[in-house]
Every structure is written in C-alpha cells, then in structure tokens.
C-alpha cells in the first residue's frame, strides 16, 4: 500500500496527488509526467510542424512561464523549430512591472529571444488610461483581452512567427467553454483558433490545455521557478472570476467536470459545420489588419473610448 505522503513510483515524498487519489507524484516524477502529457497533446493534435517559428506569449505569470520552460525542453525533439518569447506590456500600475521583470529574467536564464511590445506603442495609451476613459473597470478584461490579442498578433507578425503559443491551462479552457455558453456566444464556442482558419491568421496553439492550473503551479515549484506575483487589479471584475469559483466548486464535488465541458465543446464543434473560410475576411477600415467585419474589434473598442 502506498503511503499518503510518498510517490507512487519511487517512494520519494509526494508533492501532488491525482484526482482519483490513486496516484501521487514526487517532484521529479511530476515534472516528467507533465512534460510527457504536453508532448503527447502537441503530437496528437499536430500543434507543431517542422520549420515552425513559435511566438510564445509570455506574460511572466505562472502559466506562460511553465509553457516556456516545457517548450524549451521539447524544442530539441522537433525539426528546425525555433521559439521567441513575446511579452505584451499593457501598462497596469503595480502589476505589470513585476511580471515583466519575471519574463525578462526567465528568458535570459533560458537563452530565449524576447520581444516586448506595449499598448502605448500600438494604441497610444496604456490600459489604465483606457479604463479611466471607459469610466468603469467593468469592461477592463474585455478591453484588455481584445487589445492584447491584437498586440500579440502584431508582434508575432513582426517577428515572422508561424504559430502563437499561449499558456491556457485546462481550467482556463473549461471556464471559457462555460463563459461562451452563458453569453450565448456560439461562434466563439465552436471556433478553433489552433487551425489558423481562415488561413490568413496565425494559428494559436495551447500546449498546456490538458494540464490543470494546480499542476502548472506544482510544476513551477518543482522546477524551482515559482515566484509569487501580484494579482491583476482588474481581475475581480471579470465574469471569469465568478465562473472560476463556480467551476472550482463543481470540479471538487463532481471530479471530471472540466474535461466533460471540453468534450461537450468538441462534440458541438463536430456538429458546427465547415470551418470558416477566408471569403469573409477583409481589412479593417481603420488599421488595415485582417478581420471578419468592416472595422476590427480592437478599433471598435478604441473608438468607443474616444481620443
């Protein structure tokens, strides 16, 4: 019988247990186990191809740091694949400076090229200023999310990336499914950005999509790369924050809820008709980037906030 505080594979002290509680991992077995699962997820879903230049979205927070650590380990296994870290500096006082320092530190340590792009450079103002113009923090995460996606795509285009890798974990993905259902946003629910469809967009891949948030943090601890960073001051106002708590409680009482949500999404995608074609894609009338309407979402947001 395995003791509660021992690894199921080597009897070293355990750091985490599996959801079914049958398995426990020590520091070294957990690292190998998670790296194997990411490798498998990438292979099964053909997320990386020979010759890819992957732009890794690196906020400096836990998920993106773990993503960079794991991709750096896996890179030698792939043919002619390179990575560049991209950090978007939104300009959030008492939050972003520390995470950017962390991003700079990890890229230096790993010897990875690092490109930083800021909201003022691209949009003429930082996020704090834009939120003040909006008159309320309620839209903060929507404004930030749209502009950050645009900034990331712009930076990826500038460096000639063929893929954008983000650190979304299993919890993030399950939360997104539920959020899209609650918002009635079927388009986002069935959208699969990893395909790059329509083919003029850079595919976005999520190598950590099968790893739980808790496993990500435990991985950083065992790789000696965990640092306690401040929480985004706007995070509490987001719908995601409420969904996170609700889903956390559901998962605790009904293990497997997160995976069930992702299976539902996959099933809906299968019924969702053919993938988007490039026919509906046009250039934004304001900034010229590719989008699905006359004016891109980022320009619509910026216009709504005024000069």
């Amino acid at each position: 019988m395995v003791e509660a505080d021992r690894c199921s594979f080597c009897q070293e002290p355990a750091v985490i247990r599996g959801r079914e509680q049958a398995e426990r991992w020590c520091a070294s077995h957990l690292a190998v186990h998670l790296e194997d699962r990411v490798r498998e997820h990438i292979r099964e879903n053909s997320l990386v191809s020979p010759g890819d230049h992957i732009a890794v979205a690196l906020s400096g927070g836990k998920d993106s740091t773990a993503l960079l650590l794991i991709l750096t380990l896996l890179i030698p296994e792939w043919k002619e694949v390179s990575i560049t870290a991209i950090t978007v500096d939104e300009g959030i006082a008492e939050y972003r400076d520390e995470t950017i320092e962390s991003a700079v530190s990890i890229t230096r340590h790993l010897g990875i090229r690092h490109h930083i792009i800021s909201f003022p450079d691209l949009f003429g103002a930082d996020l704090d200023t834009l939120i003040r113009r909006s008159g309320s923090g309620e839209r903060a995460c929507t404004i930030c999310g749209v502009l950050r996606r645009k900034a990331l795509a712009e930076a990826a285009r500038m460096i000639g990336a063929t893929k954008i890798a983000t650190g979304h974990n299993l919890d993030d993905e399950a939360q997104s499914v539920l959020m899209n259902v609650l918002r009635g946003d079927l388009v986002r629910l069935v959208q699969d950005s990893s395909s790059g469809e329509p083919d003029c967009f850079i595919p976005r891949i999520k190598p950590l999509a099968r790893i739980t948030e808790k496993e990500v943090v435990a991985y950083l601890f065992v790789r000696d790369s965990y640092s306690e960073l401040p929480e985004c001051p706007y995070a509490g106002s987001a719908l995601r924050s409420e969904i996170r708590s609700m889903l956390g409680r559901l998962e605790y009482r009904h293990p497997g809820t997160r995976e069930a949500l992702l299976r539902s999404q996959a099933a809906i995608r299968k019924q969702g008709g053919p993938p988007a074609s490039s026919e509906g894609v046009r250039r934004c009338g304001r900034c010229g980037t590719l989008c699905n309407s006359e004016i891109c979402q980022a320009c619509r947001i910026l216009e709504s906030l005024g000069p």
Partner: peptide
C-alpha cells in the same frame, strides 16, 4: 477549495491529504 491552492508543509509542497 483544495484545487485552488498549493500547500506547503514545513516549506515543502505536499498533497492535501498529508
């Protein structure tokens, strides 16, 4: 909720049923 936290016992990460 256990899933929302990491627990350190005397400075070492441990499973919550320890």
């Amino acid at each position: 909720l256990p899933a929302s936290v990491i627990v350190l016992k005397n400075g070492k990460v441990v499973p919550e049923d320890v």
